[in-house]
Design a protein around this nucleic acid. Structure first.
Lengths: 126, 126
DNA sequence: AGCTTTCACAACCTATCGGTTGTACAAGCC
DNA sequence: GGCTTGTACAACCGATAGGTTGTGAAAGCT
């Protein structure tokens, strides 16, 4: 029940991060805890809308809220960010790797002076 | 026109990464170039749907396509991933930082034995 | 030239998103 | 007890996302 739905986690996290308002909320929260009302002010959207955004962020486990009377201070939870960062880092590595191998391959092709070879592995080489 | 709409870039990239199908497409492309048709097979969706996904990925500049006859090999573009990775890394740093400072702050509060201080910077401390 | 293959565009449908307004509920203040 | 504050839930709305089917265009095959 842990490693199976990492995909779902990724979807939740990336979806949450896909919204500029939500990123702004996270950025603001990073500079200090705030209540939903405080968060609503600078964003020119209603308090209810912020509440929804917080719900999304909470669903993605990017934040956690503690009930303190009627105030709902939001705490940032960096753990899920690691999930996203991990995916990106992994793929960045693969891509960089592939890019290197691609250049090698193209160099080899150029050296051999043939022009057709296979069916893939070609990129922007006009 | 470069540093201003980084927000837009982030939105595009995170939105693109928010879809499991698109992540699967990227993962598959990372293991080797493929055409839209080849990508369509394992995903149980139509070729047209994959074409749309590729368009989104291209719009986010996560991939670039080259026209080779009727085949459209997709090349991965790691640059935009850096944008996303940068944002995450930055915020992970801030969050970790905040977490440290928070603990420091709480320790300081505990040491001083006062109970009010400011208006923010409080978290789960029942 | 004609057929096939590979892809993308267009139109359409449904579900979800991001937003609003209205309301309710729980907790402090008078 | 009653008012105000802070937040969330519900209903609604327009726009968009993700999917489908249908069609057409461009390049290769025979």
């Amino acid at each position: 029940m842990t490693a199976v739905d990492v995909e779902d986690e990724l979807t939740l996290v990336f979806s949450a991060l896909a919204d500029p308002t939500r990123r702004a909320i996270l950025a603001r929260l990073a500079r200090g805890d705030a209540t939903a009302g405080e968060l609503a002010e600078p964003f020119a959207i209603s308090q209810q809308a912020v509440s929804k955004h917080l719900k999304v962020l909470e669903g993605a486990r990017l934040i956690s809220r503690t009930r303190t009377a009627q105030a709902r201070p939001c705490a940032l939870d960096p753990v899920r960010l690691d999930t996203a960062a991990g995916w990106i880092a992994r793929h960045r590595q693969v891509w960089a790797d592939r890019h290197d191998r691609l250049e090698e391959h193209l160099a080899a092709l150029r050296a051999e002076q043939q022009g057709d070879a296979g069916n893939d592995e070609e990129a922007a080489t006009p």
